[in-house]
Amino acid sequence: MNMKLQAAIDEAFAQAQQELRARRSAEALVWLERAHILTQRRPWLHARSHYLMLWAGWQQGDMREVLGQMPRILAALLFSRIWVPIGNTGRARVSAFQPMPISEELRRLLE
Score class of each variant (00 low, 15 high):
56 A>I: 00
11 E>I: 08
9 I>N: 04
35 A>E: 02
59 Q>R: 07
59 Q>A: 08
52 L>Y: 02
99 P>I: 01
95 S>F: 04
24 R>I: 11
96 A>P: 14
9 I>T: 07
14 A>M: 07
95 S>V: 02
87 G>N: 03
68 G>D: 06
108 R>T: 15
87 G>H: 01
39 T>W: 03
46 H>L: 10
104 E>V: 11
22 A>D: 09
68 G>C: 02
92 A>C: 02
48 R>Y: 03
17 Q>L: 08
97 F>D: 15
17 Q>H: 04
98 Q>E: 13
92 A>K: 06
18 Q>A: 15
62 D>S: 12
95 S>K: 09
75 A>K: 02
23 R>E: 13
108 R>Q: 13
36 H>A: 04
35 A>K: 00
39 T>F: 05
43 P>M: 10
20 L>V: 12
27 E>H: 12
13 F>Y: 06
32 L>P: 05
3 M>S: 14
47 A>M: 05
40 Q>E: 12
55 W>E: 06
29 L>Y: 04
30 V>I: 06
1 M>Q: 13
87 G>M: 01
72 R>W: 01
83 W>V: 06
100 M>T: 10
1 M>I: 15
22 A>C: 11
80 S>P: 06
18 Q>K: 15
108 R>I: 10
89 T>K: 12
80 S>T: 07
26 A>I: 01
63 M>W: 05
99 P>E: 07
6 Q>C: 10
109 L>V: 13
50 H>I: 02
100 M>D: 12
5 L>Y: 07
45 L>C: 11
51 Y>G: 15
31 W>A: 14
49 S>K: 04
73 I>P: 07
64 R>F: 05
45 L>Y: 14
86 I>E: 15
92 A>W: 00
109 L>C: 13
11 E>K: 11
88 N>W: 00
6 Q>F: 08
107 R>I: 12
111 E>W: 05
110 L>I: 05
11 E>V: 06
106 L>P: 13
106 L>C: 11
38 L>G: 13
93 R>T: 08
17 Q>K: 03
58 W>S: 11
74 L>T: 12
6 Q>T: 07
